[in-house]
Write a protein that binds this DNA or RNA. Structure first.
Lengths: 238, 238
DNA sequence: ATAATTAACTTGTATTTACAAGTAAAAATA
DNA sequence: TATTTTTACTTGTAAATACAAGTTAATTAT
């Protein structure tokens, strides 16, 4: 697994500021301390500080303005990289519940997998799981996940109930999502999907097929997501 | 309008390499010249060259590998930021045709617009247009665009037929898309959409509502896109 | 011949220094 | 008072330098 011996300084500052933004120490619209102030505060030089800030800007946490400063721009990113924007008012994480319908099991990759696989991935098999996610006790997402079983000890026995898969991978395995590709379609709900998402058959459902890249070059996460967008939309930045 | 007096060196090299990648001088999987070689070739120092390369990497044109080099990773980005991935083999730009169904006109913003507008935007009105895009002569996209009519001389009289709106904005007004937000839904086709996209009523259609940010801080592009995803998927990177 | 080591590359991180350019508030002017 | 100019801040661009760390191929030793 990727366990970096030494974490770069710019990365440390990035994590500090990201945490502060997430926790509300700096709120949306706030000006971050100036680059020179951050230099003094954390004992770094300006290029190093700037590297932290430009990474934050790339990730959408701040917007930089020449002559002005860095303005906090907190983004909704509750559910992986996607998030939900509803007709109702702003929703907190507390309304979101996850139910595992198929617990993580080690198995062979399905034939005709949605994305091409490397030999290493094929050999090592995959960890499979199915989840349904509820918003205000209404099922919104039906999520089928595949992870190559490469160097992920004890993952099948972990608790997935109320934490994001991404968070577990981050906290326990130092795996971070760097980006990815996705295919999006609108399809009619089949019997299984309509039952799981409590909707009528043939009603439009959003279908996403995603391949997520991690900081571990050979490791990808795959997921097939079905989403009931009758009441909520999928919200995303790019 | 934003007409930069002096284009930074790193930006010049970025444009050169981006063009070379787009035109196939460097093909997918190729190694770019090393940073030191680029320094010599273009008479820049390594930090400057690295800034070009990291911008290219951020935009998804290359992937950098420590100790190895920068590998070209050409992405399909024919239609704005989205692109289409079909079941058929790789499709070139030549198969894509655009038909303007409502020519650009200056008008007031619709009431209950899909995104909140600033006062400046409301005052200046909007340029409205509707387009249908064909892939292999099959209508795939029905695209309704709104642009705030701020400093865009003669835009309503320009030729939009076979060039991307983005390309015109880039070439004539130095406007570049920096990012944006979007809402995605799966909806049943109504009468108008089913007619325009030549599909049955009530069939699932992908609906995107997008707000695109430009290098001009006050200027945004808005579009409402309906997409027939029966044969093709929307493909995207993040 | 094979395996281990070394050398020569590559990109990654970091410091230091300098000036350009955009922003906003204070100061000087009309 | 209202306007213009100045000043002091901010981030943006760029150079020169140094070493760390990952990759690859040539060299060396077994």
């Amino acid at each position: 697994m990727v366990i970096p011996k030494t974490i770069p300084q710019y990365r440390k500052l990035y994590e500090i500021l990201r945490k502060h933004i997430s926790e509300g120490v700096y709120k949306e619209g706030d000006l971050l301390p100036s680059e020179n102030e951050l230099c003094q505060l954390y004992g770094m030089t300006r290029p190093t500080v700037r590297q932290s800030l430009s990474t934050l800007a790339n990730d959408g946490y701040i917007i930089k303005h020449q002559g002005k400063g860095s303005i906090v721009h907190h983004l909704p990113r509750e559910i992986g990289i996607l998030s939900v924007s509803g007709t109702t008012s702003a929703l907190g994480d507390r309304n979101l519940k996850t139910r595992i319908t198929v617990k993580p099991i080690l198995m062979k990759w399905p034939p005709d997998f949605m994305f091409p696989l490397t030999e290493l991935e094929k050999e090592s098999g995959c960890i499979y799981m199915e989840r349904v996610r509820y918003l205000d006790d209404v099922p919104i997402f039906y999520d089928i996940s595949f992870i190559a079983s490469i160097n992920l000890p004890r993952i099948t026995s972990r608790q997935f109930e109320n934490r994001s898969l991404f968070q577990i991978l981050r906290d326990h395995y130092h795996i971070e999502i760097k980006g990815g590709v996705q295919r999006i379609k609108a399809i009619p709900a089949n019997t299984k999907i309509s039952r799981l998402l409590q909707m009528k058959k043939e009603q439009p459902v959003l279908h996403l097929e995603r391949k997520l890249e991690t900081n571990n070059p050979g490791l990808f996460l795959y997921s097939s997501i079905f989403c009931n967008t009758e009441k909520y939309s999928i919200f995303g930045r790019f």
